[in-house]
């Protein structure tokens, strides 16, 4: 079959697939309370009253189960610069011995950012809040504030600042109990995550994350993505615990403590 004919058939198949798969539910709503001037997918990035880019809205994101891979809307780092201890931790990992997310424990920052479920962003001059649909979790990011001296947590302690039109979020103080991605790349309690959010136009956020963990990696490495505004979606409840048969019936192992 010639390439041209193949392309025609592929194109027809894609069109048919699009028609068949047009969703009929979950699209009728829009993000409640968000004005159309902000919740629109075309034109320049909207701005808040104080002149900052307004990230408000519900954002669809690429699913990143393996941060070394490059996929649609996501550019990974193929070769991770493991330290000796990091490589040992990575080689020793087997999800069959217990994946903490299977127990509905908090995904933590990176696995929440890597999840395929959308996030809603809310902001005012003092805070930016990320509402993760994945397991209905959230992160609050104070702007221009120092890190707090608190007990280490699953999501770490985040603070933000503006560099021009880019929101830079710096997170430390992790408890070291999470993994970076579904496939299980490791990190330690020395993890330091720097995220850069830039609303390049009304419909998109350029997202770049830098993973810095001197115990596990010899140097920082990055992952870049594009988030897409979904003005036609609203965030939905996601209770991980309500019917987690995998764990309740023993098909999954409890994660090691």
């Amino acid at each position: 079959m010639s390439t041209r004919i193949f392309r025609l058939i592929a194109s027809a198949a894609l069109t048919l697939a699009a028609v068949v798969l047009i969703p009929t539910r979950g699209l009728a709503q829009a993000v409640p309370g968000l004005p159309e001037t902000v919740n629109k997918a075309s034109g320049p990035a909207p701005r808040t009253a104080d002149g900052k880019p307004d990230f408000s809205g519900l954002w669809q994101r690429p699913y990143v189960p393996d941060m070394t891979k490059t996929t649609k809307d996501q550019q990974g780092t193929a070769e991770l610069p493991f330290t000796e201890a990091g490589l040992k931790a990575w080689k020793a990992y087997d999800a069959a011995n217990g994946d903490y997310t299977g127990a509905c424990l908090p995904f933590g920052l990176m696995r929440s950012m890597n999840s395929p479920d959308p996030i809603q962003i809310m902001q005012n001059p003092h805070y930016v809040a990320l509402l993760y649909e994945q397991n209905t979790w959230f992160k609050v990011i104070p702007i221009d504030k120092p890190h707090r001296d608190i007990v280490p947590t699953w999501f770490g302690d985040s603070v933000g600042h503006w560099e021009g039109d880019t929101l830079v979020v710096d997170t430390v103080n992790f408890n070291g109990r999470t993994r970076l991605d579904t496939i299980g790349h490791p990190h330690s309690d020395a993890l330091h995550v720097i995220e850069r959010f830039t609303r390049t136009d009304a419909g998109h956020i350029a997202y770049e994350v830098t993973i810095d963990d001197p115990k596990i990696f010899t140097k920082p490495w990055t992952n870049k993505r594009t988030f897409t505004l979904r003005p036609d979606w609203e965030i939905m409840e996601y209770s991980c615990e309500e019917n987690n048969k995998d764990l309740y019936e023993g098909h999954l192992k409890q994660p090691p403590h």
């Binding site: 699913y63 189960p65 087997d94 999800a95 069959a96 217990g98 994946d99 997310t101 299977g102 999840s115 395929p116 479920d117 994945q134 579904t182 496939i183 299980g184 991980c240 995998d246 098909h251 999954l252 192992k253």
Partner: peptide
């Protein structure tokens, strides 16, 4: 089906 809750290999 889209599965994101946990790693396939875990179960």
């Amino acid at each position: 089906p889209l599965v994101a809750h946990h790693s396939f290999a875990a179960e």
